[in-house]
């Protein structure tokens, strides 16, 4: 991409560009940080406990003797990974179900839509609590991702279904059907390309929902106890009532990173929404 088109991109899609920039910074934080910080210091007991920030430990240490900067550097990619895996799995399942429901309709549509609606009514977090407490052995980061993914498919299913439904009746699909294209060919050649902006937006919101759910579970103490994810850091900070002891360097950094993740994803999805539904945004902006 040359400089002129980059400038045009920034001008036409300011939210998208700003959001991508924020997400990029958060994603890069782990790998870049590990060049400067020894992530082994994120282990329990690797440093003296309860230190205030010093030159050696820029963000101090927690009650279990973990260097909090190292925890952030090691934990941010873990939390992003949980969100990413859950987003991919959730979107994958959601896309397939949404296509099947929207394209074929009939009883299969009724079943899929009904299941998605009922499960959406049930608070996801509680469902995950049951799942996580039932599994309660030692939860790993990947298990965590799959647990969260089990509830990340409903919103993509609904979105994709309604898009497919409206597209199915569109002229070009009817023409394709009349010209003898099979269902799979129509889906692959006519529907999928038009759905790309919606798929991208669904993916972003699925990642956001997954990160939200995983941090929620972790804050309840149901996360991987031995991994320094952002949610577990919040859990420990709450557990040791850091809030009331003025040790801001314990709870503030994970919070800032989490907020950056959500604001970044939010801006990206708003930017994508503008591309997908241009009419929505014309009226007032």
């Amino acid at each position: 991409m040359n400089r002129a088109s980059l400038a045009a991109m920034v001008r036409n899609h300011p939210q998208l560009v700003a959001g991508l920039a924020v997400v990029f910074v958060v994603v890069a934080f782990g790998p870049v940080g590990s060049l400067f910080v020894d992530t082994d210091l994120s282990r329990v007991g690797s440093a003296p406990a309860n230190l205030t920030p010093t030159v050696d430990h820029l963000l101090g240490t927690d009650a279990a003797g973990r260097d909090l900067l190292a925890v952030m550097v090691a934990g941010t990619p873990l939390t992003l990974w949980v969100g990413f895996v859950a987003g991919v799995v959730g979107l994958g399942i959601g896309t397939i179900l949404g296509f099947v429901a929207g394209y074929f309709g009939g009883w299969i549509d009724t079943v899929i839509r009904g299941a998605a609606d009922v499960l959406m009514t049930i608070p996801g977090l509680l469902f995950l609590v049951v799942l996580a407490t039932s599994l309660h052995t030692t939860v790993t980061v990947n298990m965590m991702a799959l647990v969260v993914a089990s509830l990340a498919w409903m919103i993509p299913t609904r979105t994709i279904r309604s898009q497919v439904l409206s597209m199915r009746e569109a002229g070009y699909v009817q023409v394709a059907r009349l010209s003898g294209l099979g269902d799979l060919e129509i889906i692959a050649r006519e529907l999928l390309p038009n759905l790309l902006p919606y798929l991208a937006a669904s993916f972003v919101s699925a990642v956001g929902a997954a990160v939200l759910a995983s941090i929620g579970l972790e804050a309840l103490g149901l996360g991987p106890q031995n991994e320094p994810t952002l949610g577990m850091t919040i859990y420990w900070a709450l557990y040791y009532t850091s809030l009331l002891r003025s040790v801001w360097w314990w709870w503030a950094p994970p919070m800032v990173i989490i907020v950056l993740i959500f604001v970044g994803l939010f801006l990206v999805s708003m930017g994508l929404d503008r591309i997908a539904n241009p009419r929505m945004w014309k009226a007032t902006s």
Binding site: M120, T121, I122, P123, G124, L125, L126, A213, G216, A219, L220
Partner: peptide, 11 residues
């Protein structure tokens, strides 16, 4: 949105 609202409120 009730499910979502309740999840957040529990925390």
């Amino acid at each position: 949105a009730m499910g979502y609202v309740v999840s957040g409120a529990v925390l």
